[in-house]
Amino acid sequence: MSILSPIVTIIRNQWASVLVWGVMFAIGAQALQLIMLMLRFDAFPNYLITYDWVGNAVRIINSTPSVKDMFPILFEEWWIEIGFMNYDFGNGISEWSLNVIPSRLFILATMGMLLKLFVVLLGQKSCSPKNTAFAYAGAGVGTLLISMTTAAMSWVVCCAAPSWVVGLAMLGLSVSASLALEGLGPSLFFSGFFFLVGALLFLSSRITKYGEDGKRIDALADCIDARTQSSDVGITNNINSNSDSSTLSVRT
């Protein structure tokens, strides 16, 4: 059994639930960002603009000869802008805004799905001595880094260009510290995924182990076999496609 088997099994049997988690997580994360902005600036948003994302994406594809250039531009393309317009001066200035960007939504949804897998794997019974604290730490750090680097907020003080460090500056980090961190964005983002995926693999490995022939075997079944021999308790190790909390269920 591969180390990925438990994860694949969960996805196969609970794909709808995993998908819903992902979508809900993405929406929830954006809503949370908006709430944080409202708290930070003590104001409700007073404008909302929707953009023709598909049309704009087609335009970018048609007018950017290099694929290497195209993807970063597409990655930053907005779909919805919601924020606060200050009308004290001139015809109004967008003071702050949350930019809903489909590429970021996709990342957040992916993160949500990974977190769902994490929760399900965490619920698996295992007799592995491995400490779940490592998994919690990995998932926590990973989630924090990904959330932080995918925040897309604008603040006119940073020339209104949406950037993840604009989010940090808005939330209180000093300008110089925020700007110093900007270049680390991609590294932090990929590190976040590394930690989160690492946490998943760690949990997955708790319920798999290598057999004497060098192949991976189901650690839980192995563990249960041992317990069966010692306590003569009836065990069933089956794939439960209906259970929401576990794919490998054990009845004793």
Binding site: N56, R59, I60, S63, T64, I73, E76, E77, N91, I93, S94, S154, V156, C158, C159, A160, A161, P162
Partner: peptide
């Protein structure tokens, strides 16, 4: 399209939503 600073004009030009932009020296 009216903007409060030059930064977003550059972003929009990058996406070819704007062909022409006007801004100050640093932007």
């Amino acid at each position: 399209s009216d903007y409060s600073s030059g930064g977003p004009i550059t972003n929009q030009m990058m996406a070819n939503k704007l062909n022409i932009g006007v801004m100050g020296d640093y932007p």
